Simulated scan of single mutants.
Amino acid sequence: MGGVPPALRPHLTRWTSLAPPVALVVLALTWGRYPGGVVVALVAVVLAAAVLAAVHHAEVVAHRVGEPYGSLVLAVAVTVIEVALIVTLMTAGGPQASSLARDTVFAAVMITCNGILGLSLLLGARRYGTTVFNAEGTGAALATVATLAALSLVLPTFTTARPGPEFSPAQLAFAAVASLALYAMFVVTQTVRHRDFFLPVAPGGGPLAEEEHAAPPSTRAAVASLALLLVSLVAVVGLAKVESPAIEAGVAALGLPQSFVGVVIALLVLLPETIAAANAARRGRTQISLNLALGSAMASIGLTIPVIAVASIWLEGPLLLGLGSTQLVLLALTVVVGVLTVVPGRATRLQGGVHLVLLAAFLFLAASP
C-alpha cells in the first residue's frame, strides 16, 4: 500500500466517502431479516462498493502512517470484525456451528498464505521479471503463522483429553494465551525492534525509495479515512452476514458441504486485503503485499482463538478446532512451499503459480472433500 494509488484521485474520493455510510444504512435496514432475490442482489452491489471503499481508505491511512504500520492497520481491523462475525454466527447457529471457527480460520490461512501471497508474487514478477522482498521479515512472519496454526488447528486433532478434534478447557486456555503472546511479540518485532525487516526493498537489495509524487495526506484526512475504513469493514462483515442465508442456500443447492460456508465468508471478508495486496504488488512493493498476507493469517489465528476461547463459556455444543487429514496435508504443504519461497528473498512467476495451485486445490477439496 506504499505510495498514492490511482484510488486517491479526487473524483473517486467522493464516492468512497459516501459508500461506507450508505452501506451502513443498508445494513441497518436488512439486519435480522431474510431479504428476497432483488434485495440480495442490491446488498451484493453495496457490499462490493464497501469493499472498494475499504481498500481506498486503508491505502490513505497506510500512506500517512507508513509501513509496516499501514499493513498492520488493515490486517488487524479486518480480523477484529471477522472475529465478531464468527462469534455472531456461532451464537446464532448453535451446536451446528461448532466447526465454523475452524473452517473460517483455516480458510483464511489458506487464502492469505496461498491466494494473496501467490497473486502478489505473480503480479510482481509478471511486471518486473523477478520480485524481491526481505527474507528475514517474511520468514519470521511465516514461522509465526506456522506455529500459531500448529498450536491452534493441528494439536486438537491429536490430543486425548477430549474425544474428537477439540481441546479441553485448560488446553484451550493455553492455546489462547500462547496465540496472544506470539502475536504481540511479532507486532513488537514488526513495528519497533526490527521495523526495517518489513519495509519494501529495491532490486539491488537496499531500501526502496518513496515515490516522490506521492505527498502524504494530512492528519485530518487520515483520521477521516480511518473512521471510514472502520465503518466500511463493519458494513462489509455485516452485509456478508445478511448475505449468509443466501450463501448457505446456494451452498446447499449446489450440493456442497456445510463447511464451505466458512470458505465463502473468509473469501468475502479478505477481499479488501486481497485488492490492497494486488495493488501494492503491481507497484513493485511486494514486501507490503507479503506483510498483508502473512499478517492477516497471523491475526486471524492469534486474535480469533483467544476470543473463541472466552466465547466458548456460553456457546452451546463442542468447539471443534482440529483439522482433518486432508486439511493437515494442505497446511503442511503450504508451510513447506512457503519456506522454499521465502528463503531466497526473491521469487518468479513460478512460485506465485505454485501457491495459487495450492489455493485451487484447497477450494476444490473444500467443495468436494
Rank of each mutant, 00 (worst) to 15 (best):
R14Y: 08
P21E: 08
P21G: 12
A23G: 12
V26D: 03
A28T: 14
G36D: 13
V45S: 14
V61F: 04
A62H: 03
H63A: 12
V65K: 03
L74F: 00
A75Y: 00
V78L: 13
I81D: 01
L85K: 01
M90F: 06
G94A: 13
A97G: 05
S98I: 04
D103G: 06
T104H: 08
A107R: 02
V109H: 01
S120K: 03
G124S: 07
A141H: 00
S152T: 15
L153R: 03
L155Q: 05
T160H: 09
L180D: 04
L182F: 12
M185K: 09
V188R: 12
T189C: 09
A209K: 13
E212T: 15
T219Y: 08
L228V: 12
L233Y: 01
V234R: 03
V234N: 00
A235F: 03
P245S: 06
P245F: 02
A252V: 09
P272C: 08
N279E: 08
T286C: 10
Q287M: 12
N291G: 04
G295I: 03
G302L: 04
G302P: 05
V310Q: 07
I313Y: 10
L315Y: 06
L315S: 07
G317T: 07
G317Q: 08
L320W: 04
T326W: 09
Q327E: 15
V343R: 15
P344M: 09
P344G: 10
H355G: 07
H355I: 13
L356H: 06
L359D: 04
A366Q: 13
